[in-house]
Design a protein around this nucleic acid. Structure first.
Lengths: 133, 133
DNA sequence: CATAGGGATTCCAGCAACTGGAAGGTCAAG
DNA sequence: CTTGACCTTCCAGTTGCTGGAATCCCTATG
């Protein structure tokens, strides 16, 4: 299969696949004409990576997960550890975003949003301690 | 004030302040010795930016917000629009992260996390449709 | 007055993970 | 033989800094 096919089937852009090759995540063979030639195992690997990325794993995590995947002597605890650490980071991000959301939506609600210049959002950014309720 | 003072008071690293100058967010004066010289207004601006960044606004948003802030003829609706758009993006990110979290934590819960190689996390990444309950 | 320290300066490089675009080679169909 | 859809490489840009090297400046102390 050529890169276009794999891209479509794995749901990963061709550009991204080339990038993955560049950083050594995948190593497709080459045809005589210089085209990359992907076998079923490459496709499978790319789909794996695609799903891992969709779950927010970093590229380095993907590398680790792929290594574990093809390591018969792995222990599921190793995989779980990677996933749990990632889960922690997701939780952190969510917490941060929710804090932002709360602060910001409170300000947005206080803002008239009309033609007048007075704006509690700007007022808070300018000086949060002077925020007139 | 020199950059170190401003950094401390505005809660923005000196490196970052230099970067902000480079991209034209702030334009401190220069002393005879080449040192950046910050006035109260610069400090205020940097604190403003710092707070906006803490709320997750992009640098471009900061530029817009600063422009609105110093525009007497602004309409609060303009500010509100920027904030609401940002809020939408925060919501999107949260939603994405929560989806990830749900999927991933379900997998993590199914994983024994012991010395054996069998792992539903890897199994799902390898082939989500074959996931054996 | 020499020097040591704690600032400050510039510039270059790198992070993460792509993405866009230019310039060109290849292949199958009509 | 040409057209159009692929493919190739390489370079640059994205976002928002951050680290480090080499060098300069200022103040205080011995």
């Amino acid at each position: 299969m050529n890169i276009g096919d794999v891209a479509q089937r794995a749901g990963v852009p061709a550009k991204t696949i080339r990038y993955y090759e560049e950083i050594g995540l995948v190593t497709p063979q080459r045809a005589a004409n210089g085209y990359r030639h992907f076998r079923a195992v490459d496709l499978h690997k790319l789909a794996f990576i695609g799903r891992a990325r969709a779950l927010g794993f970093t590229i380095e995590d993907c590398r680790t997960l792929l290594a574990l995947y093809s390591d018969d002597s792995r222990q599921s605890a190793q995989v779980k550890a990677v996933a749990e650490e990632h889960l922690r980071q997701i939780d952190e991000k969510i917490a941060k975003l929710i804090t932002m959301k709360e602060t910001l939506s409170a300000l947005v609600q206080q803002c008239a949003g009309d033609h007048r210049p007075d704006c509690p959002i700007l007022a808070d950014l300018a000086d949060p301690h002077a925020t007139q309720a």
